[in-house]
């Protein structure tokens, strides 16, 4: 069923591509048939934005050219399903992302970022207090995505400049905005690294630097798992196409994971009719206890 949907989607995209081929002047990002001359190599060290937690580039590479124009938003990519139901058997959602790069020669790289609803995260450092290890003062990160999956065709530092990675919030550390002062004993970056590490450990921050493949026709498709322990709500799926260290095109979709059926009813009662919900729970408990006492007395 899902495979059929993907196939249909790919066919639609292919049709779109053919239409664009027939009318090249309509393309927003014109594709020159001749390979563009590569930018001249330079000895100057790449400019790195001071970014705590961002991995330094492993080797010198071409200086990132500042984008001359806004990246195109007309990027042939999509997600196969926009609404996911969290029923009582919910075990996570599988988002299928697919599309193709509008480059016949398969140049460039694709990055997909799936982001959960933003939330405030609180990190604490344990310290020793009267022989016990207790939690220290809170360090807050605002607007941190509750879930983040970044899939790319190659490691990000080979695709984009550190600045672009940081500004597009493709680095998990870049996503968390530190709020307020940190305790005097530690610097902010230690807390930021700890935050990302803990999120990775619980499977909520996922990075697959080679998780995407462009096939012979420059097509890509990939299922990205949103685990069941990730929060429900509105997710964004951003798809980027980089070439020569430059962001050429980007596109954003939203998807929604919402409670359905009994889950939805219970959550609605628990939050909107809390007192009635409490009464209901107590009555259920009383009935359960009474029923078992009666049932076991007769046997």
């Amino acid at each position: 069923m899902r495979a059929a949907m993907i196939l249909a989607g790919l066919l639609a995209l292919a049709a779109l591509a053919q239409a664009q081929e027939r009318a090249p002047e309509s393309m927003t990002a014109p594709e020159p048939e001749i390979v563009a001359p590569p930018p001249a190599p330079t000895d100057a060290a790449p400019r790195i934005i001071e970014a705590p937690g961002a991995a330094p580039p492993r080797r010198p590479r071409r200086v990132a050219r500042a984008p001359q124009s806004e990246p195109s938003t007309d990027f042939p990519a999509a997600i196969a399903q926009e609404n996911f139901a969290a029923t009582s058997s919910y075990q996570g959602a599988e988002v299928t992302v697919f599309g193709y790069t509008p480059d016949r020669l398969r140049r460039g790289d694709v990055v997909v970022a799936v982001r959960g609803p933003p939330e405030t995260a609180v990190v604490r450092r344990k310290f020793r207090f009267l022989a016990f290890w207790v939690n220290g003062d809170p360090v807050r990160f605002e607007d941190a995505p509750s879930f983040l999956a970044v899939y790319s065709t190659r490691p990000l530092n080979e695709i984009a400049s550190p600045r672009a990675i940081w500004e597009l919030r493709l680095d998990p550390a870049a996503s968390a905005r530190l709020v307020g002062a940190t305790p005097a004993d530690a610097d902010a970056s230690a807390y930021r690294r700890a935050f990302v590490r803990l999120r990775r450990q619980s499977g909520l921050y996922v990075e697959e630097p080679e998780g995407l493949d462009l096939d012979a026709n420059a097509l890509f498709h990939r299922q990205i798992k949103i685990p069941a322990n990730a929060p429900l709500g509105e997710y964004t799926v951003e798809i980027f196409w980089f070439r020569d260290n430059r962001l050429i095109a980007r596109q954003a979709n939203t998807l929604n994971v919402a409670r359905q059926g009994i889950e939805r009813t219970i959550h609605h009662l628990a939050t909107k009719h809390a007192f009635f919900y409490g009464i209901l729970t107590v009555l259920l408990a009383l009935a359960g206890g009474w029923a078992s006492a009666v049932a076991f007395r007769k046997t």
Partner: peptide, 29 residues
């Protein structure tokens, strides 16, 4: 406590409660 937790902290999970109640009363008997 059930009533207060449901009203104030809103952390009572009815589905979890139902399983715990059924298992608990049978086990206790």
């Amino acid at each position: 406590v059930t009533l207060l937790q449901a009203s104030i902290t809103q952390k009572v999970d009815l589905l979890l409660a139902a399983i715990l109640i059924v298992g608990g009363v049978i086990g206790a008997q």
